[in-house]
Amino acid sequence: MKNTLWKALGILLLAYVFAITFLVPLGPGLLEFQNVERVISSSTENRSVPEYQLIGYGTHWDDDPDALQVFVKSKSQLAALEVIRVDDANHATVGLTLPYSLPAKSWNVLINHPIDGTLLLENGLFLSDRFIDAQATWPAPSFVEHPGNLGFHFPYQPRIIETIRNLMLHVPLWFTMFLLMGIGFVSSIKLLSNPRNQLDDQRAEASVQVGLWFGVLGLLTGSLWARFTWGAWWVDDPQLNGALVTVLVYSGYMVLRQAVEDERLRSRLSAVYNLFAFVILVILLMVLPRFSESLHPGKGGNPGFNTYDLNSALRAVFYPAIIGWMLLGIWMYLVTLRMKRVNRQIELLP
């Protein structure tokens, strides 16, 4: 009973993870703020202003078009822009009502809306034809950060957008591989300290075999993600190189096992190699990426996601995902191990 309980738990957790991961909508965000090459005369100021189009993703501007406010911000200087019209839920036309002399060229675009809340487009506006005067200031308009009024959703992140869902697959798959390779590492140490126990050899082999599957899946999901966010299926990056090398090193482990005939010798040689492989794995995936520049999230420090990138909605799925994948991995490992033992017993039959 106890034995089936954790398996059922793993399956249920993963079912929950899949359902939430793919069915919860993404929160709103700003895609672009672009000049539409048109000049209109503003109603408030009696002169012509350039017209910009603001494009949102998953926003609800037409539900309450009058409440949409657009601001630009550079350091502490804030300015309100005039919303000329709201075209639909995620297109709005904005007049660039800014004075000629500005404190900076590059501006963040901010919007406020009762449903979507406060959204930010970093460096959304770049003005090269204005006079730059670092001292230029004007009275700031009233601006209150708005939490928004939306149901459960995943946070919008620029460039990642909908692929944030991959977080629940890619990262836990690698964690599970770590766990399995760790089991292999411990089994190998145990085997070397007590070479008579061939069960430890089977443990090491089974865990590496299953762990390799998780590693390959981690590579594939990572490759998909790289294609979307970085534009290439593979990029030269310490974290990615480390991941590939890890999979290659453990493939070498499987090759080594095939190469040795004698069982005792095989268990010992592969255990020694496995210890090397695990040390290299730790160096490659946990040490080196912290010391080199990386495109991978959390560059120059933590090779995972930064904590502030994980909001409560993501956490509600991410932690169950880790546990679910790990339980599945352990289950697969146990089945593989039993298969090996039965196979061996059959071989030993008279």
Partner: peptide, 8 residues
Amino acid sequence: NPLEGWFI
């Protein structure tokens, strides 16, 4: 469709 986003 802007209301539900592209994916869903």
